[in-house]
Amino acid sequence: MHSRLINWFKFSSPATFYPLAGRLVPWFTWGAVLLLGVGLYLSFFVAPTDYKQGEGYRIIFIHVPAAWMSMFLYLVMAGWAAIGLVFNTRLSAMMTSSLAPTGAMFAFLALWTGAFWGKPMWGTWWVWDARLTSELILLFLYIGFIALKSSIDDPRRGDRAGAILILVGVINIPIIYYSVQWWNTLHQGSTIKMSGETSMDEVMLITMLIMTFGCWSYAFATALSRVRCIILERERGTTWVQELIEKEEGRGA
């Protein structure tokens, strides 16, 4: 029976996960560079000009992926937080805190590019539109999480307190989104309707998806390399970190 049972917890110990993450980071970094390169080329040279917004609409190729990534990373963090609380595995809590800065960066980027797109199209830098407002609230949630983690010294309590905050936050995201939607909406209908046909040109859609996958593998690379830093910091007392440091010293680091 045991052989068929995949040992899910093989990589849940930091010691075994650290080298695995080390091997994965270069793959994801190069994946990101490649995908973003192709995506940028497509978005500037291949995608046709928009009939209404002319060239300005090209900002969509970074605005929408950033917004998607900020929400997606928050959900991934919530997933890791739940696993961390249920299985009490330290590594999943480390993954949660390693994703937070990247998610906050994407939320800020979504706001920045949204404002830069709003200026020519709607005339002002900041518009109290439903999506921009809920993105701003999402950024506050990220900052709240990072502030809570940094103000708790004991890592064990920090992990579990952060996990609870994220889970409470995740329940609130749909409520916040619809209450802001109810409150006011200026944003044009979502151009990408998963159900119906998208009101967008084929090439534009492909470019945006490539850019999204580029950002996705970028987020993976940064999260994995940050989790390695966190592991080193948290596990400094362990023997395998000492050996690692000796090896590092041997290489004249």
Binding site: I137, L138, F140, L141, I143, G144, A147, L148, L165, V168, G169, N172, I175, I176, S179, V180
Partner: peptide
């Protein structure tokens, strides 16, 4: 206040 503010917006 920073943690709770986003949650009380609705």
């Amino acid at each position: 206040a920073l943690l709770v503010m986003p949650l009380t917006i609705p």
